[in-house]
Amino acid sequence: MSKTLKDLKIGDFAIISGFVTEDVPAKLYDMGFIPGTEFQVKNKAPFGGPICISIINNKSLLALRKSEASQILIEKI
């Protein structure tokens, strides 16, 4: 079973390995979510709120909806 960004816990590090479908919103690419990108989960809002991650190579903080996070396949490191 493939893991997605939504499955990670606060403090976990991972690498983006791909996407669940070929129909990926361009906004994810624009935000830096491309295969090979390393990131860390910084915070997860309660009650189905957004997930905050830090992209390692440029130290940017980004927030994603859980529906978006469930589309990003990852490999935990």
Rank of each mutant, 00 (worst) to 15 (best):
I10F: 04
M31S: 07
D12F: 03
R65E: 13
I55C: 04
I53P: 02
L5C: 07
S70N: 13
E75K: 11
F39N: 02
K3N: 11
E38F: 09
E22V: 03
A69W: 00
L62E: 13
P46H: 08
I10C: 09
K76C: 06
V24W: 01
F47G: 12
F19A: 04
S70D: 14
T37P: 04
K76P: 03
F19Q: 03
I55D: 01
A14Y: 07
I15V: 13
I34L: 09
K6A: 12
S60K: 14
G11T: 01
I34F: 10
P46I: 14
D7A: 09
G48D: 07
S60P: 05
G36N: 06
P50N: 12
P35M: 07
P46K: 14
I34E: 11
K9M: 11
E75S: 10
L5G: 07
D30F: 08
I56C: 02
Q71L: 15
A63C: 08
S54G: 12
D12A: 10
K27Q: 12
S70K: 15
F19K: 05
K3V: 05
A45W: 05
A45C: 05
K27Y: 13
G48C: 08
V20M: 13
A63S: 10
S54L: 15
F39C: 06
K9Q: 13
G32A: 00
G18W: 07
V24H: 03
V20L: 11
G11L: 05
K9R: 08
D23H: 03
K42Q: 14
T4L: 00
N43L: 06
D12G: 01
L8M: 10
L8V: 00
K44E: 06
A26E: 13
S67D: 08
I55P: 03
P35Y: 06
S67V: 14
I77W: 10
V24D: 00
M31I: 11
L8P: 02
F13P: 04
K44V: 08
I55A: 03
I74L: 00
S2C: 00
R65L: 10
P25F: 00
I56R: 15
T37G: 00
